[in-house]
Amino acid sequence: MVTVEDTRVIYVKNVNFYYGGFRALTDITMDFEQNRVTALIGPSGCGKSTLLRLLNRMNDLIDGTRVEGEVIFEGNNIYDAKVDPVDIRRRIGMVFQKPNPFPKSIYNNITYGPRLAGLNNRIDLEALVERSLRQAVLWDEVKDILNQSAMMLSGGQQQRLCIARALAMKPDVLLMDEPTSALDPISTAKIEELIQDLKKLYTIIIVTHNMQQAARISDMTGFFYIGKLIEFNATEKIFTKPDHKQTEDYITGRFG
């Protein structure tokens, strides 16, 4: 047997997911490859956000949920009983729909996670703050006001701060749940630009309702409908000639 280098950072295998008695995801199998941006699209309630939150065990926080199947991250099933979800979330960062910085200073927003993970050296922390903010292309805007409250920043800046905060944990994978849906077009463009840069270092999975955004920034696109992965293909393929009629109907607005 020929061994092919496995470029999958994380993949899901035959996953079913239940909220109580309701099956939110049905038999999902998907590979997320290194240094790729994968977009998850589909109408509201199709399960794309559920899948995203499945990848860093955020769904654990909701009572009465159940997972079947496997989510393999670096060779291990993250739903294995011996895996600590806290550890998983350190390795798989997340950015949310609405910018949600803590009501702390910009500096403390970034250092919050690393400190609680045991990083206490002041010089290391300062370096980390600069590195993370630079990666999130926010450094030049905030380097002189690091001690001011993050709440003072604009929405777009707050969201980039949230990205910097996630990056400070040095994750392998970055999950983004509609990260620009609350932002104006210019902030959105900045974040999209940022995502393109970040994929050189991270594996990014993004949920978006904006078709054009998925087209602009992603390499792979997965279309979900009623809890099923209808089509998973190269983005270019999806947006020129998708294999499935359902996908085409959805992205061209022929639904409902």
């Binding site: 078709m211 054009q212 020129t240 000639k241 992205i251 061209t252």
Partner: peptide, 9 residues
Amino acid sequence: RQPIARDLR
């Protein structure tokens, strides 16, 4: 309209 897929074709 920024057509895509079927509309783009």
